Amino acid sequence: MDLDMRKVRYFVALAEELNYRAAAERLHLAQPVLSRQIQSLERELGVRLFLRDSTGTRLTPAGEQLLKDAVPLLTDARGLQRRVAAAAQSTRSLTVGFMPGLTITFATRALSKAHPDVSVEVLRTDWTDQVTVLHDGRADVGFVRMPIDLTGLSTLSVWHEPHVAVVAAAHPVAGRDTVGIAELAADDLLQDPDTVPEWKAVRVDAEYRAPSPPARSVEEKLEWVASGRGFSVLPQSVADYYRRSDIAAVALNDVAFNEVRLAWLRDRRSPVLDSFVDVVRQHLPLEESEARFSA
């Protein structure tokens, strides 16, 4: 049986919304059409994917498994389409993703010099899509901040930089040179606690969960910090880039450094990509002044 990717896309929308009306609006479909497509997919797979009752719509165990597999499947399909389209172009190109706080000019300039016939593009990413853009083909290679899911990726460690605690300007530790993470144990961390295990280890409330939904960008996170909802841990270069008067960045003396890596799909190789990786490798170890430009 061949899966209909259109129906899989409809399934993912419904699985994420768990509401037929909202999913239909998101897909620009009539609700009865969406219902028929989901029923057709269930018949083709021979399983029930959703349960509907007075409490609403929820996934069955089979639906949960399909959602887990379908998201990367759709991402890979989009990546395939983009790579095929790029191969048909008359000019070669390389798109490089980069995270906030980083400037990658040293590498893009060197590649352009070595391959003047290659169009080098850049794509600003964030914590939510720095890996996705590699799988779905929007970027060929990316400067990512760890930790990330390394499945299917090759990576090269580029540099490390310290973390800072970003707090509201009125916070008791604002204005200090350094702070220990235990001094912030009573404050709410405005990001996934697993990304700062040092704070999680000293947190008074062991069951604490970050705000849901999470902030979609650094800017949103800093708005929360400024309003006094809690604090955030950011790489030094990111905090430097987003300086503002109503927040303060304080060096953390007992939190591990952030690692920046160059990442690309393990099975996605080309002479231009190989050349770019070599360019970055030749610049290792990067001086701190090179590593902490803002983008």
Rank of each mutant, 00 (worst) to 15 (best):
D117C: 05
N258A: 15
K68W: 09
V131Q: 11
W264H: 13
R9T: 12
S40Q: 13
F98L: 11
V33P: 09
T60R: 05
V164R: 00
M1F: 13
D76A: 14
V272H: 02
A88K: 06
L184R: 01
R78V: 14
R26D: 14
A168L: 04
E183K: 05
A22L: 15
I181T: 01
I247M: 07
H283A: 15
L29Q: 13
S237R: 02
I148E: 03
S227Q: 12
E259T: 14
V277R: 04
T105E: 15
I181L: 01
L156N: 04
A114W: 09
Q236C: 05
R36T: 09
V218S: 02
L41D: 02
A70N: 14
L102F: 08
V133Y: 03
L14V: 10
R92K: 08
I247R: 00
Q89I: 09
P211F: 05
L80S: 14
T125S: 10
T108W: 00
F257W: 15
A77R: 13
L273T: 05
L51N: 10
A15P: 03
F257M: 10
P193T: 00
G56M: 08
L51A: 09
Q37R: 14
A226S: 10
Q191F: 04
G79S: 06
A263N: 02
V131P: 03
W159V: 11
G142Q: 06
D53H: 10
V33N: 15
D274R: 10
L262V: 02
D254Q: 01
H163S: 13
D192N: 08
E287I: 09
F293I: 04
A62R: 15
A182V: 10
L34Y: 00
A88W: 15
